[in-house]
């Protein structure tokens, strides 16, 4: 009798077995992302994942947004960077709860890091009850696009000095995002950045994407962004209530 399987044949025959699995390699991240989303919703918070290259103005956008909206909404921020607390210090100076995640080399945030950051944030003063949670991803237009953090809304930013070819060159950042922000429009006189062409390019990749352009620094068209956020917060709250 065979020692391995107990069948009647001698033990020198081979035992092969084919197992049908059909499971995504992203499944582990997606399961954690789902539980993050439930945590955010239990608190009544709308989570927004900000993705862009380094230096597109994510932190500056948050500083100005907090200044304008902190009386209307309870805002919290999870900052992702490879090193340093610098971004968190800038946000902390605006008086809202913030947690800095330093990935120590990793080029993106994933759902597990976000989960840890969220629980740290809940321990910060005011971090246990939020209306809007911003998650500022590591500056990178490639890797962050593949990782769901549990956000309700994903935003990709491109600043005017980066050039209008970013949608064409980094399509996944645009196909996976809900909104596209063109920032630093105060620099348009100095750069060759045809705003309408960049918009059209992004829409060609993702016909559902919403596009806004403004300057956080001068405040030009910044009201459109603030109104957009107000609507988004109300809309997501209504859907998840």
């Amino acid at each position: 009798m065979c020692d391995s399987c107990g069948c009647a044949s001698p033990s020198d025959h081979s035992h092969t077995k084919t197992v049908d699995v059909h499971e995504s390699l992203f499944a582990a991240n997606e399961n954690i992302a789902k539980s993050n989303r439930e945590h955010f919703e239990a608190m009544g918070a709308v989570a927004i994942n900000l993705i862009s290259s380094p230096g597109s103005g994510k932190t500056t956008l948050l500083e100005h947004t907090i200044e304008h909206l902190r009386e209307e909404f309870r805002i919290g921020v999870i900052e992702g960077d490879i090193e340093t607390e610098r971004d968190a210090e800038r946000i902390r100076a605006k008086g809202v709860p913030v947690v800095q995640l330093t990935t120590g080399g990793a080029c993106h945030l994933d759902a597990t890091m976000t989960h840890k950051g969220f629980h740290q944030l809940q321990k910060e003063p005011g971090g246990d009850k939020l209306d809007i949670l911003f998650i500022e991803n590591v500056g990178n237009l490639v890797c962050p696009t593949s990782f769901d953090l549990g956000e309700h809304h994903r935003i990709v930013l491109v600043s005017v000095p980066e050039g209008p070819d970013k949608p064409a060159k980094y399509p996944k950042a645009f196909t996976s995002s809900d909104t596209f922000l063109i920032t630093k429009t105060d620099l348009l006189p100095y750069f060759d950045f045809p705003v309408e062409e960049a918009k059209a390019e992004a829409l060609r990749l993702n016909p559902k994407i919403k596009v806004l352009d403004f300057s956080s620094k001068t405040g030009e068209k910044f009201d459109e962004w603030l109104d957009f956020l107000r609507n988004l917060a109300t809309e997501v709250k209504r859907q998840t209530a």
Partner: peptide
Amino acid sequence: EQFLFAEGGDELILQKVEME
């Protein structure tokens, strides 16, 4: 028309494993 929606194509799936 230029506006086309992508469907599927984002799979990274372990389908089956043959072992002995």
